[in-house]
């Protein structure tokens, strides 16, 4: 059944030989992977590994030196507008217009994604976000976590086929984190795929169907969390850091080393 589906539908995301450089420095170096429909895919790596840059290439924010990024059969470089319409995006560092209220921001982005929402629908969705009290508050007056919640909501406003989340749980309280995972599960149930980055290996192990660990822009390993643990549990570097049963975090540190990145 699944095989049949795969032969008909293109993968939701397919990246091949992706290379991105800032000036003379190559920060994404020959990355390749694919994401299937309904999959939650974790992109893991230490600070500066190239996760955000990889996502930027998917979003069309940076121009790759080489490689192809194809979203559901649509090549991002050639058809940026069509590709962007399929993507829901939450950026690691970005902001909405500080002077707009939550309601105005929702209205703006609904319009940009071609979603027609009535005033009542907008208010209802803001209420379900737990921001009902802040309806008319300007973006700049929201707390960091509230801003993050709004950003995540905007990312899903058009029920995107592929959701790209860059450290979505950073700065969220445990309640919001749970709500976020529920939302992600629901979106997946509705047929979306999700690519996310996180520094919490626990979280990745718990929610991601597959993870890729990258460093210095190169793919180190890729598979389900269980597969990765199984594959690397006997590596000497992994054994050296494991206490008891090997976890995804042990594999991560074993593969990427334990010194802090600048």
């Amino acid at each position: 059944m699944r095989e049949m589906n795969e032969s008909v539908e293109p993968p939701v995301l397919e990246i091949s030989d992706l290379r991105v450089a800032y000036g003379s420095r190559t920060v994404v170096d020959g990355l390749a992977f694919r994401v299937d429909r309904g999959e939650i895919f974790g992109l893991l790596g230490p600070n500066g590994a190239g996760k955000t840059t990889t996502l930027s290439a998917l979003e069309g924010l940076v121009k790759p030196l080489s490689g192809r990024v194809v979203v559901n059969g649509v090549e991002v470089q050639r058809y940026p507008i069509e590709a962007k319409a399929l993507l829901g995006v939450q950026l690691q560092s970005s902001s909405f217009q500080a002077e707009l209220s939550i309601e105005q921001i929702v209205k703006l982005y609904a319009g940009l994604y071609g979603v027609r929402l009535s005033r009542a629908q907008i208010r209802e969705s803001i209420r379900t976000l737990g921001l009902g009290e802040e309806l008319g508050k300007r973006f700049k007056h929201l707390s960091g976590g509230q801003q993050q919640r709004l950003a995540l909501f905007i990312a899903t406003i058009h029920n995107p086929l592929l959701l790209l989340l860059d450290e979505p749980t950073a700065g969220l309280d445990p309640q919001s984190r749970r709500t976020l995972w529920k939302r992600i599960e629901k979106l997946r149930g509705d047929g979306s795929s999700i690519v996310l980055t996180t520094h919490s290996m626990e979280e990745a192990q718990a929610v991601c169907d597959r993870v890729a660990i990258i460093d210095h822009g190169k793919l180190l390993t890729l598979g389900t969390p269980a597969e990765l643990i199984n594959k690397h549990k006997d590596d000497p570097e992994v054994l050296a850091v494991a206490h008891g049963a090997v976890t995804l975090e042990d594999v991560f540190i074993g593969l990427t080393g334990d010194e802090i990145r600048d």
Binding site: Y79, E82, A85, L100, Q104, G111
Partner: peptide, 22 residues
């Protein structure tokens, strides 16, 4: 892409109106 071409592009007029208002 050909199938999607028209369907996948959100309305430019709606986008422009939303931007102008904001």
């Amino acid at each position: 892409i050909d199938d999607r071409n028209s369907a996948a592009r959100p309305s430019l007029a709606l986008a422009m109106r939303s931007l102008l208002l904001a």
